[in-house]
Design a binder for these strands. Structure first.
Lengths: 257, 257
DNA sequence: TAGTGGTCTAGACCACATA
DNA sequence: ATGTGGTCTAGACCACTAG
């Protein structure tokens, strides 16, 4: 389970006398080692990692240095600190995390999660665009999902989702129909694929017949097209998602800081 | 200029023995005092604030505590640290900052800034929507700007911008025509109004006659409508901007983390 | 009461920029 | 050589949680 003890020690050197081909401070080297543990699944989402004190002893550094390493993981949303309780591996099951990735919200009233209705789950081969987005070669196997998001029973988003088949063996329409909750939660618990970050590209497009049916709009109506590529550890793409969104009473929200 | 010395001392108390009605750690109290100095304009955008060591002496805290206070300001983009040089008040003149707020980028090739052409600069009174967005009462005086953003000479965004007139006395069409560079840079240097953060709401809409002319698209074409409310210190709204964007060869980019 | 994260200090030394 | 931010340590004590 916990293989940090097998990690070779960092190069021995006097305190504060660290050096490297490319200079990296001690806390960052340690952060990277912790990140390796997370990637390997030594600690599962939602569970506590060892305490600061224990990790500091293991790595033979001061608690302050250990703290800085964990601080970076926390600010990158890899772990969540809870005073008095411990430090926990972040999980897409947490409401706070789900909220971070919920961008479509009603013009009036508070944001609330959608319910999904899966329309399709089919295995096939990546076309040029999907392959490019996922960092695959054209023709490599992918899973294609299609789903409708409903807010208050009203269809508002039609999502087409492509996944690299290699990482999602055993994903079926039945499994999706059973599952309720965030898709990334399922990826995480069923396939050990943890979504870390995503990049989105947004355009305005005219509704095609496909969307006309699903969303019940007139042909040519303006829709928001949201393309999202999600990444896991090591910037490996794990999902390409294209959403077509009806934005008459909803909008995409974003904070610039 | 530098009025920190006049700030009353923090309540005297033994190290580590701080208490308050609502508990706030020392470094956060100090951060708030620094924020007051920034708000008052004690240190101007682009200039260096006093060194960590000097500030620590002024506030009678350790350098480590001072450091944490400044760290928070840096992570909130209020200041920028430069090793060996000092800590500087963030400014919208910096390319890195401009890039943070540049969301419309070409589908192919590297992002690059637009050139503006101002079409209008008129004083008037806030309607219901503008007033609501800016936190004013309907009828309060506002300045209304209209401008076209061109990328490679091609018009791609039509912006309508409303500003509270009170904070922008002396803003004229001539002044805008002379200025080249980011609008927030002008706000900052000419009016002492520093943009800190913004909230955006995005929809897809059909082009109206107004946009048809300016952007040269067919009536009813899908356009991205980006509403932005910008805030300065203390969450005071200083700008409401509505952009209509042609997204055939451009898109709105966003990172989810 | 014990364990965890959070704050604060004092001091040494490193990395970087500038003169 | 000097001044700035950046790293690291060792230790004390505070705040929060749970048995």
């Amino acid at each position: 389970m916990d293989s940090i003890e097998q990690i070779p020690n960092l190069p021995a050197r006097p305190h504060g006398g660290r050096r490297a081909a490319v200079f990296a401070p001690l806390y960052r080297q340690i952060r990277d080692l912790l990140l390796d543990s997370l990637r390997r699944g030594d600690w599962l989402p939602g569970t506590a990692i060892p305490s600061e004190k224990e990790l500091a002893q293991r790595f033979k550094v001061s608690q302050g240095t250990m703290r800085k390493a964990i601080d970076e993981l926390a600010s990158d949303n890899h772990v969540v600190r809870r005073q008095g309780k411990g430090t926990f591996v972040a999980t897409h099951q947490e409401p706070r995390v789900q909220f971070r990735f919920l961008r479509m919200v009603p013009d009036l009233g508070a944001p609330f999660p959608a319910t999904s209705r899966f329309l399709e789950c089919r295995r096939g081969r990546a076309g040029a665009e999907v392959a490019g987005r996922l960092g695959l070669r054209a023709g490599e196997p992918v899973v294609h999902l299609q789903r409708l998001l409903l807010f208050n029973q009203l269809p508002r988003v039609l999502d087409d989702i492509w996944l690299p088949a290699r990482a999602f063996r055993g994903l079926t329409a039945e499994r999706l129909a059973q599952y309720s909750g965030p898709l990334y939660g399922l990826f995480e618990s069923e396939f050990g694929v943890r979504m870390i970050r995503a990049e989105e590209q947004i355009k305005a497009v005219a509704a095609s017949p496909h969307e006309v049916d699903a969303l019940g709009v007139a042909a040519g109506s303006p829709l928001l097209r949201v393309d999202r590529v999600s990444f896991t550890y090591g910037d490996r793409a794990i999902e390409f998602r294209r959403g077509h969104c009806l934005t008459n009473d909803f909008h995409y929200r974003n904070s610039l800081t």
